[in-house]
Computed example of a mutant assay.
Amino acid sequence: MAEKTNTTVRLFGNLHTLRRERGLPPVAEVFLPEEGMAAIDLANKLDLPLDRIEGVFCNHLAYGLDHRLHPGDEVAFIPTGVPGPHRFMLGIHAAGKGHLKSSD
């Protein structure tokens, strides 16, 4: 029996391309345990190369890969290669330094 899913993960940029090359959709349906899972562990579970990931968007905020994801979160991995100005506007720069992007 297939594992139930409770969270949708979106992949963009080079991660989208990688999934397509592997014959997989750029959107993954996964199961996260109630206690959550670190984004880095989810990336490993999805067999994503860590050197191609800068962080993770969780519920519209950028975080580092140590951020804990929970069932039902809106998740998207941030690929490497996002242009400079966008890195600051989206909070990617701060997430890479372990700082949460401010929502204000």
Rank of each mutant, 00 (worst) to 15 (best):
L24I: 12
D66N: 14
L15I: 03
V56K: 03
F77V: 03
L32E: 05
L50Q: 13
F12R: 09
L18D: 08
L24Y: 10
V56Y: 09
L32C: 08
G55I: 09
E3L: 10
D73W: 04
L69H: 00
L100E: 07
A39H: 03
L69D: 02
E21L: 13
T7S: 08
G81C: 11
L69Y: 00
F12H: 07
E54S: 04
L32Y: 08
E29M: 09
I92G: 05
H67T: 00
G64R: 05
R19H: 14
H67S: 00
L48N: 00
H86L: 15
L69P: 00
V9A: 12
M89F: 12
F31C: 07
V9D: 07
D47L: 13
E54A: 04
A28W: 09
L11V: 03
F88L: 09
A95V: 06
R22T: 09
L90C: 11
K101I: 09
G98D: 04
L15R: 02
L61G: 03
L48R: 00
N6H: 01
A94V: 01
L18V: 05
L42P: 01
P26W: 14
K97H: 06
P49L: 03
V75P: 04
L90R: 13
P33F: 13
H86W: 14
H70R: 14
L69E: 00
H99W: 04
P25M: 15
N14G: 08
G91R: 02
M1P: 07
V75M: 05
P85Y: 01
D47R: 12
H99Y: 11
F88Q: 01
L65M: 15
E21K: 15
P83A: 10
L32V: 14
E34Q: 14
A62H: 00
K97C: 05
L11F: 12
G55P: 06
E29P: 04
L65I: 06
T5I: 11
A94F: 03
E29H: 14
A38E: 14
L90A: 15
A76K: 08
G84T: 10
F31I: 00
M1R: 08
A95N: 11
T17W: 08
A76H: 10
I78H: 00
Y63A: 05
E3T: 15
P25D: 15
L11C: 07
A76S: 15
